[in-house]
Simulated scan of single mutants.
Amino acid sequence: MGGNRRHSLYGDPRGVVLAAMDECAAFGTVTARSPVIATPAMGAAQRRFANAALVLESELDPPALLAALKRTEREFGRRPGQRWGDRVLDCDIILWSGGAWRSKTLAIPHPAFAERRFVLDPACAIAPGWRTPPHGLTLAHHQARLTRPRPLPR
């Protein structure tokens, strides 16, 4: 989860993310929480983001959990807007213990998770050994692939 706009009740983006992590306990048991990490803005966004990850044990299936997360975003003041723009809160399901999930509105694992440090850095802080479908690489492997130095072309 992440955000880069202030909230009248929760304050700066870090406070928003911490409050949203607390709210997720309503959907099950939060068994791990990453630190909140500051990350650069992407796309149309103008401000740095605060990002974090959590592990949630829930009886909700992925579509029901996604609906609950989107409802939480709206309750925190998220409004429809520009893709990749500034936002109070963004919540996504990146991985699921049940493996892969595909529907018209949801893809697990998240299609771009392995290309995003703002996802991998917090996720690796709490679950570096989590294996991802379909190839079984761990989150730590994905992070290493993304962050390792590459040789310069000759």
Rank of each mutant, 00 (worst) to 15 (best):
Q82L: 15
P62K: 07
G77V: 03
R87S: 07
P63S: 04
L95Q: 04
P63M: 11
P80W: 04
K104H: 05
T72L: 15
F113A: 04
D61I: 00
R78S: 14
G81D: 12
E57R: 15
G99V: 07
L89D: 10
D86Q: 07
G77A: 09
L65I: 03
S97M: 01
R78C: 10
P111G: 06
E73K: 03
R87G: 06
A112G: 09
R74C: 12
A112R: 14
A114V: 00
R78Y: 09
G99W: 06
H110V: 10
R87C: 03
D90T: 12
E57D: 15
A67W: 01
S97D: 12
R74E: 14
G77D: 08
G81Q: 05
D86N: 14
D86V: 07
D86S: 09
V55K: 03
G81S: 10
T105Q: 12
E59R: 13
D90L: 02
T72V: 10
L69T: 02
T72D: 08
R87I: 05
G81W: 14
E75Y: 06
F76V: 04
H110T: 13
D86E: 06
L66I: 08
G98E: 07
R79M: 15
D86I: 09
A68C: 09
V88D: 10
C91V: 14
W96Q: 06
G81Y: 12
A114S: 13
E59K: 04
G85K: 12
G99T: 01
L95K: 13
S103T: 04
S58C: 05
E75P: 00
V88Q: 11
K104S: 08
A64P: 07
S58A: 09
W96V: 03
E75K: 14
A112Y: 08
L106C: 00
H110P: 09
E75I: 02
E75W: 03
L95P: 10
I108N: 05
G98V: 07
F113H: 07
E73T: 02
W101R: 06
W96D: 10
